[in-house]
Design a protein around this nucleic acid. Structure first.
Length: 500
RNA sequence: GGAGCGGUAGCUCAGCCGGUAGAGCAGCGGACUUUUAAUCCGUUGGUCAUGAGUUCGAAUCUCAUCCGCUCCA
């Protein structure tokens, strides 16, 4: 016996037992799961093509239709019935009369359950209230449902069940299905936009021997044959830049990252990022492409550059604000002055007031960043690029040519949340080696999130990496924004949950 | 990790200052040939998250645990 041999969950009740009996009866009369019914039409196309015709016109045309879908509503009268079927594209009503389908089939149909998957062929008609319907000449059970669906009017609202049994959520809640269709469209338009600009989509390792590319705690796993630890990647950055060294020039990867942190409405341990790198570009070019990708995503999903997020308007029409950290603090906290923001002691006191913790750093730029995170970031509703990140917190970014304390880096904030992060890449191998050493010192001093020294990455840079711009966008957060979703769990099919 | 809220029929919910549980939908049986959450009549269905405690008696009060949501760190 395998140790994985789990106890089979018995989750049966009378309703399911009744349906199992129905199924047993169906088996006596043939296969209740046939695979020879082939739908020819989709509900949305039928509506699009034929809604325009009147009841009389449709009757005259006698247009055939063949659809398959899940029965969601059923209204049986004496000798005729209506059923609402959901297919992948929408829903359509069928009119089922004993007269047309015969007594036996009608009797069988009366015992079909909500949730059964049916195949229906017939001719298109309109009811007296004008609803396009299929006047059935054939009704077949294609797949028997054994578990009663959630309530037809209130649907499924229990969040836990919606996340754990997403299939049910998708069956019942149209908005959930729409959200995931939008997610797919967003990823598709990003992919198309980049490929059209000569970008190459690539795949790099998900399992790293040295975790790198971001300051975050990794998940650890173990390779048995090699008897060594492996780390699920926290970011693909260092591998993608190796490809830039290799001369691929423009690359991107849309894939999962894994970070060993807490769960929240904005954090799932695995999440999807796009990272892209472009040779001979800098962070200004990266800001341009960020705007382009966010706008095209909005058009592909929302259909507009102006929309609501959680009841408040977001406007992507104007070019996004660009503010340095200090400028942003001053703009959104008008009681503060530039003198105060250049005063380390003032900053420390202010941060302590907001967080009740004394900042550990003595760097002016880092103190400014910490204050920004506390009192400004949450206020950035319409898209805003924040520039001039401190050296210390940007170990892979190119130092500013004019101010050695800061880097050529930006973060994009929308609806008070970080959405994207980009910079001019650090391509000086000696500078990068020094930065890695600094990170290692921080790690030795107890900072679990500090980076490791990646000697092969330094070796790659020593072969020469062209000046490069790089960008990462959190896909889940972008989808949240464009689908008006409050939680990251609403845009990930199967968000991480504790076991039942 | 902390705080608050929640977990009652398949689903959506009521019941909660103690007296062993209700509705609607779904299901089952019946009526009904144009319904739209169809309607009408009848009817089945419960480990009240789990465990302990208080009590003559606990869905209800107390404690612990599990799961979820929200906020904070």
């Amino acid at each position: 016996m395998s140790e994985n041999n789990q106890e089979i969950i018995v989750d049966e009740n009378r309703l399911i037992a009744e349906r199992r009996q129905k199924l047993a009866k169906l088996r006596e009369n043939g296969n209740p799961f046939p695979n020879d019914f082939k739908p020819k039409d989709y509900s949305d196309e039928l509506h699009a093509k034929y809604n325009q015709f009147s009841k009389e016109e449709l009757a005259e045309k006698s247009i055939g239709a063949v659809i398959a879908g899940r029965m969601m509503l059923k209204r049986v009268m004496g000798k005729a019935a209506f059923a609402t079927l959901n297919d992948a594209k929408g829903k359509i009503q069928a009119y089922i009369s004993k007269e047309k389908i015969g007594e036996d089939t009608y009797e069988s149909f009366k015992h079909y359950d909500l949730g059964d998957i049916l195949g229906i062929s017939g001719t298109l008609m309109k009811t007296k209230t004008g609803e396009l319907s299929i006047d059935a000449t054939e009704v077949r059970l294609i797949s028997k449902n054994l578990r009663p669906l959630p309530e037809k009017f209130h649907g499924l609202s229990d969040m836990e069940q919606r996340y754990r049994q997403r299939y049910l959520d998708l069956i019942i809640n149209d908005t959930s299905k729409e959200t995931f269709i939008k997610r797919s469209k967003i990823i598709q338009v990003i992919r198309d936009t980049l490929v059209n600009q000569d970008y190459l989509e690539v795949e790099t390792p998900m399992m790293h021997t040295i975790p790198g590319g971001a300051t975050a705690k990794p998940f650890v796993t173990h390779h048995n044959a090699l008897d060594m630890p492996l780390f699920l990647r926290v970011a693909p950055e260092l591998y993608l830049k190796r490809l830039i060294v290799g001369g691929l020039n423009r690359v991107f990867e849309i894939n999962r990252n894994f970070r060993n942190e807490g769960l929240s409405a904005r954090h799932n341990p695995e999440f999807t990022m796009i990272e892209l790198y472009e040779s001979y570009a800098d962070y200004n070019r990266m800001m341009e492409i960020t705007e382009e990708l966010v706008r095209s995503s909005a058009k592909a999903s929302v259909g507009s550059l102006v929309f609501e997020y959680q009841g408040k308007e977001v406007n992507l029409e104007n070019s996004f604000d660009r503010l340095t950290i200090v400028e942003a603090i001053l703009k959104y906290n008008t009681h503060l002055t530039i003198e105060q923001l250049n005063d380390k002691e003032f900053l420390k006191a202010e941060i302590k007031k907001l967080t009740r913790e004394v900042p550990k750093t003595d760097s002016l730029a880092v103190l400014q960043l910490q204050l920004f995170e506390e009192n400004t970031e949450g206020q950035l509703w319409n898209p805003t690029f924040i520039l001039d990140h401190p050296m210390e917190t940007s170990p892979l970014a190119r130092q500013s040519d004019t101010n050695p304390a800061i880097t050529e880096r930006f973060e994009l904030f929308v609806v008070g949340r970080e959405l994207a992060n980009g910079y001019s890449e650090l391509n000086d191998p000696e500078d990068q080696a020094a930065r890695f050493k600094q990170q290692v010192e921080q790690k030795d001093a107890g900072d679990e999130e500090a980076m490791h020294y990646d000697a092969d990455y330094i070796r790659a840079l020593e072969y020469g990496m062209p000046p490069t711009g790089g960008l990462g966008i959190g896909i889940d957060r972008l989808v949240m924004l464009l689908t008006d979703s409050a939680s990251i769990r609403d845009v990930i099919f199967f968000p991480h949950m504790r076991p039942e």
